[in-house]
């Protein structure tokens, strides 16, 4: 692993067991997360972004299985990297890392808190479990955490129940819980999708501050390109279980090269030209079901640049447009060949 890379996913394949038949869900994805950076996995429903995020911590439900690949994690203690795929699914080793060195936050904060226990008890439990702290120490640390994520009057909030928190407060509470053990990586699965725009702005600001002040690395899963533009350093665009394009955020938004990325960016309503009321460029058709995966490049039935007997014959190989910008599309492979001649 390279020096500042903290988490590295290599050729990861995940399949769905459907009545004994293996349906591919994630088909060989690669990405790296560098220390202190935010990597966004972006795509529409069914692209495999959430499944990938769950696989990172070996949290996949039973019917989903990692069939091959590596998930290498470089712990902060400087020891040799660990490959999560080689660990037992619910073994001691992965449980030590999960929630401790890598934490996760979800879209729906209500379902990640028990309704029967106070916020303080639930965050304190994580601290006592992982850090072997006493009850009093855990409580003091919890108040500190609640304060850090911007919950007003943390000394009072620590004794409140989740139902007493508003949506935005619960999301902050969940972030506080995730931060309890001072993890080096935070995996955030659509953390702002269910929030109102003003609360979303606050949560994004909080995550941005965690990155800037604490050097937190994040994997951010979302479908919202606006949020991506505001928080991410690097972006991987996913479509039907493959990363079709990857690069720094400025490069992906400023110089998109995969037809899918270009279409997505054209399909979002923008605020810059309200007077024009132009027609939005939509992508025809919809994402096919996992059971009807098109052969070759999975995007070809919806693509305006479709080339017969090429795009539908085999998956396009990875083309490196620059040291930082990768794309999987035959358009670019053809261009690369021409340049070589």
């Amino acid at each position: 692993m390279q020096n500042d890379v903290i988490l590295e996913v290599h050729n990861l394949h995940i399949t769905l067991d459907f009545d004994g038949e293996d349906i591919p869900v994630v088909q060989g994805i690669d990405f790296e997360l560098s220390a202190g950076k935010v990597l966004a996995l972006v795509g529409e429903s069914g692209c495999g972004k959430s499944v990938t995020s769950q696989a990172l911590l070996r949290l996949l439900p039973r019917e989903l299985r990692i069939t091959s690949g590596q998930i290498n994690f470089q712990a902060a203690d400087g020891q040799a990297p660990v490959d999560f795929v080689s660990l037992a699914k619910d073994g001691k080793k992965i449980r030590e890392i999960r929630g401790n060195q890598i934490a996760m936050i979800f879209q729906e904060p209500m379902s990640s808190f028990s309704v029967l226990h106070t916020i303080g008890n639930q965050i304190g439990e994580v601290i006592r479990l992982h850090l072997k702290a006493s009850k009093a120490e855990a409580r003091a640390l919890t108040v500190e955490l609640l304060d850090k994520v911007g919950i007003p009057d943390p000394a009072r909030a620590v004794d409140q129940y989740p139902y007493e928190f508003s949506g935005g407060m619960r999301q902050r509470g969940m972030i506080a819980k995730a931060l309890a053990c001072n993890p080096s990586v935070l995996i955030a699965d659509e953390p702002t999708t269910a929030l109102d725009v003003t609360i979303q702005a606050q949560v994004l600001e909080l995550l941005r501050r965690l990155k800037a002040d604490d050097g937190m690395s994040m994997i951010f899963i979302t479908h919202d390109l606006g949020v991506v533009a505001q928080i991410a350093d690097d972006v991987a665009i996913m479509y039907m279980g493959r990363i079709v394009e990857k690069g720094p955020v400025g490069e992906i938004f400023g110089n998109p090269q995969h037809p899918y990325t270009v279409s997505l960016l054209n399909a979002i309503p923008r605020l810059g030209d309200l007077s024009a009321r132009r027609e939005l460029a939509s992508i025809r058709g919809s994402v096919p079901s996992l059971f009807e995966r098109p052969p070759g490049c999975a995007f070809h039935p919806r693509c305006d640049s479709f080339m017969e007997k090429l795009c539908d014959a085999q998956p396009p190989p990875l083309t490196r447009l620059s040291p930082i910008h990768e794309v999987r599309c035959f358009l670019h492979q053809a261009a690369e060949k021409e340049a070589a001649l």
Binding site: Q200, A201, L225, A229, Q230, G250, G254, L271
Partner: peptide, 17 residues
């Protein structure tokens, strides 16, 4: 001011409530 614009060169500066 809180709308995240899909343009990384425009850094959002929301007015927080």
């Amino acid at each position: 001011s809180a709308i995240p614009e899909a343009d990384p060169s425009r850094v959002m500066q929301p007015v927080f409530l």
